[in-house]
Design a protein around this nucleic acid. Structure first.
Lengths: 191, 191
DNA sequence: CATAAATCTTGAACTGCTTCAAGTAAATCT
DNA sequence: AGATTTACTTGAAGCAGTTCAAGATTTATG
């Protein structure tokens, strides 16, 4: 039950669902335990669920034809993660979503969420706000990618998410920041 | 009236508002004529409106401390543009939004949109879907930025938006793709 | 249409970042 | 605890992309 409460808190930062809507929402959630290195999404399979992280850390990454990994997103407690493109269009995923630590997530299936939103506009609103914030966030990252040096990108990330820096493997962070692990190692040395 | 119809068509790709909701929506729209090189958003001012492009082309860009421009988004007919971060949080903008050609837009004020969404959940849904698609799109761009070479990024953009390539200044496209105008010129030469 | 302003091109020198390879350290498993 | 895998470090060489500067071309304006 613990995870339900923290997700509810997240929701109540933006909207105030009534008791009935809240119960309806809880009823579509499923708590899942995941082990380190486990994949909760894999390329080729449709990403049915969106996952809210109760405990643990995760990453979504793309594996290029040449075998290079590109981390698109990290998620720790109180964040959502999925192959979002696959999730909203219900098309086959192109990303892996991997647990970086043992953890627990709350999964909600796409069709259940859609039905819930149709019935309770308060959730339509919640997911609109979340999507808008996610978009604004992604735009800030794009600006950082096109405008800043590798060192600046690392420092910016470190300022924003010092906890994540200490919690994920360095090669994963490097692939998120768009540089090689070797170069990230060198940046850290000279700072 | 012409612009209203094409925006309505856009909406009806995702949802089906009733006559009343439709009229309420139309009532918050304002059609504005803009001249080439005109700014419709400027840093420091809160971005009150979201703009739907009826005719013309626009770009949103960030001007760094060193005076370098970084284009975050282009918009042509049937696209939305704004400083989205400023718009959703109603905080001062950090971007310019500039008309690249003479054009016409439909502006809708933040507070009017919010009120409309509260009253007509069908619009809540519409803007949720638009935000989700925008986010998924931004994620694809991030992958392209962190994983691909300058030449690959250009080719990818050219495939997706051949029309835009021919329509916007090359320095603007270069700053969108995260490279110098000189280098884009060289890429185009060798292709 | 002539002049100015803005945009694009080209080359040469330079540098931030990658690649490759080998060694060290730290997790993970039995 | 010892063995094995996984992750991180370091240096040397190479290259993708930048910077600077000058000229050519296109677009705007009186």
């Amino acid at each position: 039950m613990s995870g339900y409460y923290s997700l509810l808190q997240n929701i109540e930062r933006y909207v105030a669902p009534g008791a009935e809507a809240r119960e309806a929402f809880f009823s579509i959630l499923r708590e899942v335990v995941v082990k380190k290195r486990q994949f909760i999404v894999q390329p080729g399979f449709v990403c049915i669920h969106q996952s809210y992280v109760v405990q643990g850390s995760f990453r979504a990454f793309f594996l290029s034809d040449q075998g290079v990994e590109h981390t698109l997103q990290f998620a720790v407690e109180d964040w959502f993660i999925s192959d979002f493109n696959s999730y909203i269009n219900q098309t086959p995923a192109s990303l892996f979503v991997e647990a970086l630590e043992n953890g627990r997530i709350l999964q909600m299936a796409h069709d259940d969420v859609e039905a819930l939103c149709s019935r309770y506009p308060v959730f339509e609103r919640y997911f609109r706000i979340v999507a808008q914030k996610s978009f604004a966030f992604a735009q800030r990252r794009i600006l950082s990618n096109i405008g800043k040096s590798a060192e600046q990108r690392y420092l910016e990330f470190y300022e924003l998410y010092p906890d994540i820096v200490g919690r994920v493997p360095q090669y994963a962070l490097a692939s998120y920041l768009g540089m090689t692990p070797e170069f990230l190692s060198k940046i850290r040395k000279r700072l």
